[in-house]
Computed example of a mutant assay.
Amino acid sequence: MNANGYRDYFKVLGVDRGADADTIKRAFRKLARQYHPDVNPGDKAAEARFKEISEAYEVLSDPDKRRRYEQFGQYWSQAGAGGGVGGMDVDFGRYGNFDEFINDLLGRFGGGAQPGGGSGFGFGSGFPGGFGSGGFGAGFPGGGFAGGARSGAANLDAEASIRLSLAEAFRGCERTLAVNEERVAVRIPAGVRPGSRLRLKGKGNLQPGTGRRGDLYLTIQLQEHPVWKLDGDQLRGELPLSLDELALGGQVRVATPDGEASVQVPPGLTPGRSLRLKGKGWPVKGGRGDLLLTPVLKLPEPLSERERTLLEELRAARSADPRAGWIQLAQL
């Protein structure tokens, strides 16, 4: 402070006079963490410095106060506003803990709970869209990150979605996310289901000046697979079979999530009736669900001359009409 009582708030925060709101907020966050009284217990100099940077941020983060400050200098608070920071003479003894003071302070800054439950402080600057080894940002269904009211205090929790392949969800995987300029490794457990929510403790929104962080909740989404579909604890898929395999049965090689396996197809298997492979389905606590294979007729394309000849002979030798009785039942 100069002898005439003027504080250069831009200098206090270490920013240029033309700094925008985001630059001022970042500078305040950095300094607030450094001089936070909880980080410097009993340090009166740090406490005084924290009050000073808080005072500077209160003025420069408010467009009207900043305008009057830049126009009238140390007399800004008397220039049509009726009161102001007034040196921020704060009695810490009136608060139960420092978080109570910060919540009160941020409420005066306009950073408390917002209508609809938001905290007023987001994840900072935007992130590239999508997950994986990159970051994530505002491109999520439902608007990206969201918070809700919690006991009247600012809710710092955030929510986002993460999209996995079926193989990643089946086996489990690890993803690296960019959160608030921090790279966070997330372990996805094997057998996670669509709609499940994973909690990353302390990785949510950051409240400036306090160091408090909410939690990040990730909602699992699964990409479609060309063969397998998840149905509870079971995996379902179609099994292509030839005409002779459907009619005569026999051992056939099939694919499972664990690799190839051999399955006995019963004679006369009709399409729509499923084959069950126990313990080959989705991972569950203490084991696995079942794998269900639904047979579908797969004819060769094109038919060879030999296959065509045999099918012609089969048609000539057929002893029953497959639609016997069906026509009458189907009529309305």
Rank of each mutant, 00 (worst) to 15 (best):
G249A: 08
G126Q: 15
V12L: 03
S54G: 14
L60C: 09
S196K: 12
A19K: 04
A46P: 05
S196E: 14
G204F: 00
R66N: 01
E58L: 15
L216Q: 02
E307R: 13
D16E: 15
R17E: 15
K65G: 03
M1W: 00
F127M: 13
I53C: 05
V90P: 04
E47G: 15
R236P: 01
H225A: 02
G116R: 08
A169I: 11
E224H: 10
R7N: 09
D258H: 12
K25T: 14
R197K: 12
R308D: 14
P257Q: 01
L218V: 02
G195L: 02
A146N: 14
V186M: 10
R315G: 15
V227C: 04
A169C: 12
S125E: 15
E100V: 10
G111A: 11
I24F: 02
N97W: 00
P63H: 02
D231Y: 03
D233G: 03
Q251S: 13
N103M: 08
G148Y: 03
G5T: 07
V15D: 01
Y95N: 05
R67M: 06
R49H: 07
E313V: 14
R183F: 14
G250R: 04
R108A: 08
T210D: 09
D244I: 04
G18C: 01
L13H: 05
E260F: 14
A247W: 00
I162D: 09
L292M: 11
P240L: 06
G110D: 05
I162F: 11
E47A: 12
V90D: 08
L200Y: 07
A138H: 13
A48C: 02
F72W: 04
G202E: 06
A21V: 10
S262F: 10
R67N: 09
R66T: 07
P300C: 08
R150E: 11
I102K: 06
G250F: 07
E301V: 12
R187W: 01
L297E: 12
V85Y: 02
